[in-house]
Structures are given as C-alpha cells and as structure tokens.
C-alpha cells in the first residue's frame, strides 16, 4: 500500500526558479528509499513537500491517500507528527538536554509525564544513548547528536522518517552507526526516505534509489547503486 504519492508535482520558487518538475512517484509503506543527486537537484525540496514545509506549485502530494495541500494550516502540526525528520545540522534545541530534546517531541503532543518518562528512556536505549541522557547537545559528538535526533524522530512512532543528509557531518564510523540504526528502524516497519551524497552508503544498502537532476527524476531502480 502506498504511503506517499507524488502526482505531477512541480515546485517553482519566486524568481521563476524551478526546483521540481513533473514528479510522479509512489513510495510504498515500509520501503527504504534513497534519493541521490547533486546539490540543487531538488532533493531537499522534495522532502520539504512531504513534511509540509513547502507546498507544491502544481500537482499534489498524497499521504495515505490524502492530499497534503488540502490539510488546514492549523492542522499541519498534527500531520507532522506522522513524520519524523533528521537533518545534517541536527537541529537540536541547544538549551535542552538529550532527554529533554526527545521529550519535547512528546510534550508538544500533550503526552503525560508518565508516558514521557517511560517512552524516552526506551527510545534512547534503542539508539544506544541512555548513558548520555543528561548531556547537552554541545557536550555530544556529531554522531551522538544525530542519534538523539533519530531518537526524537522516532519517539512518536512516526510512519515515515525523513533523513536529509543525516551523515553529512559525520565521520565514517558514526555514519555507519546511523545507517545501521535507520535499517533497524526500517525493519520495525517504518518507511525511511534518505537523501544523501554518500556513494558508499547507497551502494551498500542495495535498496531502491531515485536519482534527481535539475528537478526531474532521471532514474528509479529497485536495487540501485549510486549513479547520477
């Protein structure tokens, strides 16, 4: 069953800059999809359309058969809770500890303190960061920060996790730890969409790969390798 569907989607930014053109794409639930392409090829825009940071100029993006652009602005926060996001620059709240950063994702959706105190350590355990729960982001290495981000993305049990260059700032060891975690999360049933520049990762994953160039899908292989 498709969890995400792009139908003739184009995105034009002011100044007539075309970021995406005529994208048609079906992403099945439980898939591990890699998106590759040069900088400026439209990878990030494609992801932004999914987590509703941007809206398509033409066409529609469907999440579980519902057009995302038809969601009332007021309800977008609730929609976003279905999607976990991980970024190259981590985007952790600097004044909160690792625990609090993960807990924040639950606090905003009105979870009770008991649930938070039960769920957060559980998730931190999964990403192997339980012993660093009380550390602030600045006290953690890049790899550790990214694991906290993954924990935060994961804690609300989203249907989709979007990872936009999650390993861009990490050394090879940390990179593989993150990829292993993504695979683990995927094996538990969560759809993963990974945008990356890293050839090694894509080649080793041996999963579906989409290549973007100048806003168009130029390749879509079920067991793909990194090629643009």
């Amino acid at each position: 069953m498709p969890i995400l569907k792009f139908e003739n989607v184009s995105k034009t930014y002011p100044g007539n800059f075309i970021a995406l053109e005529e994208i048609n794409l079906v992403i099945e639930s439980g898939e591990f999809l890699s998106i590759v392409g040069h900088s400026g090829s439209g990878k990030s825009t494609l992801l932004k359309l999914i987590y509703a940071e941007e809206q398509a100029s033409e066409g529609h993006v469907y999440f579980n058969d519902r057009a995302i652009d038809s969601i009332n602005r007021k309800h977008l926060p609730y929609y976003r809770r279905n999607i976990g996001t991980v970024f190259q620059d981590f985007k952790l709240l600097p004044q909160k500890t690792a625990f609090e950063n993960v807990a924040y994702a639950l606090e905003v959706s009105d979870e009770t303190e008991e649930e938070i105190n039960e769920l957060v350590p559980e998730i931190l355990e999964i990403v192997g960061m339980n012993d660093k729960a009380k550390k602030y982001p600045r006290q953690l290495s890049g790899g550790e920060q990214q694991k906290i981000c993954l924990a935060r993305a994961l804690v609300r049990k989203p249907m989709v996790i979007i990872a936009d260059e999650p390993t861009g700032n990490l050394d090879p060891v940390a990179t593989w730890e993150i990829i292993q975690l993504l695979l683990k999360i995927n094996s538990m049933g969560t759809t993963i969409i990974l945008a990356t520049h890293n050839k090694d990762i894509v080649d080793k994953l041996n999963r579906r790969v989409i290549a973007l160039d100048k806003g168009k899908v130029i390749r879509d292989h079920q067991k793909g390798r990194y090629a643009i």
């Binding site: 987590y51 940071e53 926060p77 996001t85 985007k91 924040y104 994702a105 905003v108 959706s109 935060r152």
Partner: peptide, 9 residues
C-alpha cells in the same frame, strides 16, 4: 525545530 517535531502554533 519546534514545528518539525509537530508543535502547534
């Protein structure tokens, strides 16, 4: 960040 983790306005 707050918006991304689903915080309402």
């Amino acid at each position: 960040i707050m918006r991304l983790v689903g915080a309402s306005n």
